[in-house]
Design a protein around this nucleic acid. Structure first.
Lengths: 343, 343
DNA sequence: TTGTAAGCGTTATCAG
DNA sequence: CTGATAACGCTTACAA
């Protein structure tokens, strides 16, 4: 058995409660005693037992992370490691630990969250995705358990603390940008429509076209998983139209890479024949040929802010609902050009 | 306060200990009582408190994960999400939770591990990297705390359970493959030499050349971080030699992508002018232009096996030391060709 | 087959 | 300023 507070107490000739107070650095303990106790701790190599402390405190200093189940989304998209990094540093600062959900199916994930929450394993939860209809989010909201969402909640947006980009505006902006480059036939290749981010980006795209007085064509809008195959299929369909688009808004760098490859195979040049702008600006964007013009959404900050606001919420239950918008900016590389054949 | 075992006991008219036994499905409890207790649990929406259980049991059902601190290594390399996925499913199967280290610096990570271990937060630990000299590994080994390493321990390899590929042999094989394609000037671009995997791959490369009676040239061997910039710098140096290599063994797909881009900029064609084979076979390998010939190391399995063996070790302390070698195989795509100008 | 009670390692309340 | 003592919610001898 490991060394406990009692062993320390014995060695220092004080009561266990005193040792506890020294650990908490309680000001009502004399410096002398503190010194004595600290020496004893040192000598015995004492480390407080978190589990016991958690039980007594009803607080674990652990944050639960809910990842999307879909294996591919998580393990292929560099979004997640980056957001994890942001969370990690945010948590480390305040001495919180991070525990991940392990379930794959929707049901497993839900059960996992219930275990975390009702099992008292975590003090709060961060949802690393936002779906249109989400059992987990409803559960958390109904229980009034501290949680924050990375992304925009579909429902009760005003009642749930979340950290997000303004995806609507960002997409409007990049579509405007394409418009400025004289494009009029602009396609949209989006991800899973069950994800709120996809919806938001689609809306931004539509708004831009509407403002410009261009009518939307359904054939220009394609949805696929945020995945390479998605990109390939989508682009093939699109380019077989009678009047194929001269520019594309693609919801994700990874998909854009697929698009780029498919276009390459089809002998269509970027940006000469078609312009592309995508989202996330992960390392890939820079390393593709040609390098992608992409919206940097500041993934690290998304995670970091999420961790910070959850911790605030945990430590102060009266903390008001917050919406944190992380700024984005367009990183112009080589995949956008002016539409040819028109001055 | 949440509903506890006592509430259930009261409602079911039994002692708390009986409820506890029902949860554990103790065979010495009559079916009738079990039924009664289960109904009460159902009715109250009871969920066992993990913290209390952990304290009583001295076991948490949590596995600690130690990630490399280096931000870029973790958040850029698809290796980690994939290995996490494998760990995740392995853990889920046996109802273990996963807790990640959050530290960035070497010292923070070490402290984090000590907290996990001495704080009783976890039952075992998985090291997701293997460095040549590692304080964390020494600590774990000295304390005789259950842990497994993903990768090959540099020291005490026989005394530490680990899950790895045979990187030495794999690299020898691919170098042999290049040799069969008539290449004689073969370069090696490796990652951080503090990582054991780099060392192993370098040794395999050297062995192959030695066996073929080709003498090694120091200028053909370059080390950089597993990173894009690394790739660029390395390849430039290499191609400026008097007798530049006609083939390259690159330790990582991400680096290989950098190499590919740099070669492209320099006007050097792959595989016509130079052949490339790399490692890991992440999604990137398939999506690069040209698609990379790469060694698939079965990352998912690395994680999955690691989780399984750690859990075995936790649940049976007399479990013998194991070395699990996950098979690899070369995925031939488009970056290797026969050396020209020789029949 | 079930109940009683001690104990897991802390913290917190209340005296002193 | 410090010491007893009772929680925290569960498990597990030991009794019955």
């Amino acid at each position: 058995m490991a060394v406990t507070i009692k062993d320390v107490a014995k060695l220092a000739n004080v009561a266990p409660s005193t040792v506890s107070r020294v650990i908490a650095n309680n000001p009502r303990i004399s410096e002398k005693t503190k010194q004595k106790v600290r020496e004893a701790m040192e000598q015995l190599g004492y480390h407080p037992n978190f589990i016991a402390r958690s039980l007594a405190n009803q607080s674990t200093q652990v944050i639960g992370l809910v990842l999307p189940g879909s294996a591919s989304a998580f393990s292929q998209n560099p979004f997640f490691p980056t957001v994890l990094r942001g969370l990690s540093e945010g948590a480390q600062e305040k001495q919180y630990a991070l525990q991940m959900s392990t379930g794959q199916s929707e049901e497993e994930i839900y059960e996992g969250v219930v275990q975390m929450v009702q099992g008292g394993r975590v003090d709060g939860i961060i949802l690393l995705y936002s779906k249109v209809e989400d059992k987990v989010m409803n559960y958390l909201k109904n229980r009034d358990f501290p949680f924050v969402v990375v992304g925009k909640p579909y429902k009760y947006c005003e009642e749930i603390t979340h950290v997000d980009n303004d995806n609507y505006r960002a997409t409007k902006e990049v579509t405007d940008y394409l418009l400025e480059l004289k494009h009029e036939c602009i396609g949209f290749i989006g991800g899973d429509l069950n994800l709120v981010v996809t919806v938001e980006r689609l809306l931004g795209y539509e708004k831009s076209l509407r403002d410009a007085g261009i009518d939307m064509k359904d054939e220009y809008i394609i949805h696929e998983e945020f995945l390479r195959e998605g990109g390939r299929e989508a682009i093939k369909e699109l380019m077989q139209l009678e009047a194929p688009p001269t520019a594309l808004v693609v919801a994700d760098d990874l998909m854009a890479l697929g698009v780029l490859n498919t276009l390459d195979e089809m002998g269509i040049r970027v940006p000469e024949d078609i312009s592309i702008v995508s989202f996330n600006n992960v390392l890939l964007a820079e390393m593709s040929r040609p390098p992608l013009t992409s919206v940097d959404i500041n993934i690290y900050n998304l995670g970091n802010e999420a961790a910070k606001s959850l911790i605030q919420k945990i430590e102060n239950p009266k903390e008001p609902i917050k919406r944190i918008i992380v700024p984005h900016h367009l990183v112009t590389r080589c995949t956008c050009g002016e539409r040819k054949g028109k001055s």
